[in-house]
Design a binder for these strands. Structure first.
Lengths: 316, 316
DNA sequence: TTGTAAGCGTTATCAC
DNA sequence: GTGATAACGCTTACAA
């Protein structure tokens, strides 16, 4: 293993000069810096991050916390995870996976990314001793990254109108959370701007729950109705039941999902959906968290990313 | 932060005695051990794994490598990942996610878990300088964990026969890999034992590819045929096309998948499938890898786990 | 059986 | 601007 000392010898300087070239290059004369950099390249030197971690009282580890009790096979998270991992690896960070908020402070970590949190979890957050960022919008002042949910459903609703669907119905999630309110607001505002009356059903995030709603109310739905769904899972259930009832998609009925991960492509017909930039969000969450750790916990603010409409086969 | 020295003071012994109680308790008298343990509990002492890592020339980090170029949102991997993570966390290990085999040795890690590897990757493995284990069976002597693929399809085939399906057709994956050969062998051997003639189609692992095969050959399939599929993805395509053709599932046609992660439940009808113990495999892979690291790379052998038949709605 | 000393690779501090 | 020294928390090697 090539160490700082090896480089120092090679460049005929002290260890400290090498260390400075790495951490505070402006404090070193151009001449020595050149020598040191040449030596580092020649020896293929890479700092030992464990030693760095020890002296900086860091662990180079953060935790990815999943609170949502739904099954962790949700493909959604896989994307987030890969994005997050990418962001971490750039800075030589590794992570652990945690699903139990109470055990979050066991072991060692420099900070946490918390996903799937609900309003009732918030009280626990204030007790955390390490910096953390949230995936998912909140109005308590916790740093977060999320999709611009309101813009997403605004886009979906406007698109449905532009395809000349006459009635637009929102199939939302039965949760009292900011992201759901934002999605509904995007829908409601757009309808009202067009002198239309909103109609919202709320269901659990399972295709079968959505299927049931459509079944129960099918007779009330006229031709030229488009369903704006708060998730692709729901959209799949809606599509399934509409087809079961003999309805024609996309000619008579349109369906628009939300998420754009995996499920939208497995479904048949393939879903028109609002695609969240999930990988990107994961990456940004990593940057934000590492930044926050570096700045000993100072606030990082909020980040809303623009989702994209993906036109496919479930709308005309 | 509570350190070894703090515990030593509290217990009136030297740091080394405390260290020994942790790493070689048998070398310490019962009396001192008791004192030290009491002190550790009272102070809520936890070893600093970074310091341990530095002196042991470890990183406490391993890499989870995904070589398969299919999208990483495959829910399958999510389960494996969570199992793996669980296994690691027990030993205070963290991990990084890697998708590029060529960059695997960048950065620092004590070892690798390699998933989704294909035969043509093997030559690269021999060059790796750190211990690694594979997820997926191979006959090159690399340590691995996998499902007992042959047993899985044997179980599926026997079940299809027991449900009195007359013809059993295998829809396999179009890859020349040990796991696929094992699955086909499980099917073929069982058929031959029953004086039946095997019939195999091979497709890419996409529902649409499977759909196409069924479409192309539907007229050749008689009532009372059961399709044994090498993945749930394939099974979903088979189901979809059979229904499209107006065939009755499960009365006239049966479909059995393989994997049992997420997809089997999203599908309609819900799939009868061979469920792999994926989470468990992840956990075992972690143990195996950490074990191998601890034993400086000594062979760990092979582990085939028993899959389970899950009876649901796609077979009668 | 227990303790002392040295060292793992790095950085902060304080001289020069 | 550069270098010597101590320190981070722990373990190995050796001495008592």
């Amino acid at each position: 293993m090539v160490t700082l000392s090896d480089v120092a010898k090679q460049a005929n300087v002290s260890k400290m000069t090498v260390s400075r070239v790495i951490n505070h290059p402006e404090q070193v004369t151009e001449e020595l810096r050149g020598l040191v950099e040449a030596a580092m390249v020649e020896l293929d030197y890479h700092p030992n991050s464990v030693a760095q971690a020890l002296v900086n009282n860091r662990t180079n580890v953060v935790k990815f916390v999943t609170l949502e009790d739904i099954d962790t096979t949700e493909p959604y998270y896989m994307n987030l995870l890969f994005g997050f991992a990418r962001g971490l690896t750039k800075k030589q960070y590794a992570f652990q996976l945690v699903t139990d908020l109470n055990r979050i402070e066991e072991g060692r970590a420099d900070g946490y990314l918390i996903t799937g949190s609900r309003t009732h979890n918030y009280e626990l957050f204030d007790k955390l001793k390490k910096p953390f960022v949230l995936f998912g919008e909140n109005h308590r002042g916790y740093d977060f990254v999320d999709t611009d949910n309101q813009l997403g459903e605004k886009t979906a609703t406007e698109y449905a109108l532009s395809r000349l669907y006459k009635q637009i119905i929102f199939i939302g999630l039965d949760v009292k959370e900011p992201f759901e309110y934002s999605r509904e607001a995007g829908y409601i505002n757009t309808l009202q701007k067009n002198q239309l009356i909103p109609k919202i059903y709320r269901v659990d995030n399972h295709s079968h729950a959505a299927q049931k709603v459509i079944q129960d109310h099918f007779r009330e739905f006229k031709k030229d109705t488009c369903f704006i769904c708060a998730s692709d899972r729901i959209a799949i259930g809606v599509v399934r039941e509409l087809e079961y009832q003999g309805a024609k998609i996309p000619e008579d009925f349109g369906v628009i999902g939300f998420d754009g991960v995996f499920l939208d492509q497995v479904s048949n017909p393939k879903l028109t959906t609002i695609k969240q930039p999930i990988f990107k969000m994961g990456e940004l969450l990593a940057s934000m968290l590492l930044q926050k750790i570096a700045q000993s916990g100072s606030p990082q603010g909020e980040l809303l990313l623009e989702p994209k409409l993906i036109r496919r086969e479930s709308t005309r």
